[in-house]
Amino acid sequence: MGPSVIAGMAGAPLRYPQSALAPAGPVARSEFQLIQLSLVIMLGVFVAVTAAFAYTAVRYRSRPGNLAPASAVDENRRLEIGWTLVPLILLVVMAVPTVKDSYALTPPDTPRVVDVRVIGHQFWWELQYTRLGVTTANELVIPYGRKIDLSLTSADVIHSFWVPRLAGKTDLNPGQLNTAWIQADRPGVYEGQCAEYCGLGHANMHIRVVAVTDREFARWVDGMRHPRVTPASALAKRGMALFGQVGCSSCHTVAGTRFHGQLGPELTGMGNRATIAAGTLTNTPAHLRRWLANPPAILPGSTMPDLHLTGSQISALTAYVESLR
């Protein structure tokens, strides 16, 4: 798993990694085609109207001394019918694909091979692979070339799931379940973020979709189901002990251990993820140390408090979290 993430990131960096104009899947592509069609028609309208306006303004500009009352034409039936009908026709041209896409992009009632429950939290994403029995956070690993069904809800306020290169937004409403689907054409990492204002951490609530091959996906699932439970190094072992003592485990779950906290993101396989802190920092030991030292300083509004850890505690916890693979 690890290498594929690196590979995904190693590709030439995109100039606009969150661009809706660089679709990488069928949903975003349909949306992009509609954006293109409407943009072209609307630019045409803008140019035509502005040209008519500018021509009129220049031609009938009053010259000095000429204050004679202007011609008093105030009606022209044929013209008026014309500028009612032409916009109507243009609208129909856009309405047809719009209605078609509205239905086509709605996910079917029967879920497909991979379905993920996306639960929004202030300010992170809980990702449950319901049929695979795997839970992770903030990095959605999917097999590329396959349709992935999402069912979305929220544990607190309204959030919105937006990975522009794969699909437009779907809101996460508390108490309700929405559906959507995504598909990535190629392996790679697709960036996104929460698009409905959800509080102080809204700007930093990133989501990353990591698209891998079927085989890599199967290996990843296997790894998540059977994680390495006991760390190898002595430092990491000390970190594991601390994890239970200083309070980490009251919020975080690590599969296969006795840590079953429910409030924070699942940390199973954390060492494999490319980012920490809801996508704000890359996952390096140095960043993890900075994060553990004072989370709210990095993510305003973060519910993870500053636990006032000592330097050696932070080192041990860092080693343990990095060992979760």
Binding site: I35, T50, S102
Partner: peptide, 27 residues
């Protein structure tokens, strides 16, 4: 007002197209 409102009006038509608006919305 005339040209600038036409820009606002035409981008308004674009945001009315639901599938495209999934990208425009809240951006």
């Amino acid at each position: 007002f005339i040209p600038t409102f036409v820009v606002g009006g035409t981008s308004g038509v674009m945001t009315a197209l639901a599938p495209a608006d999934m990208q425009f919305h809240d951006s």
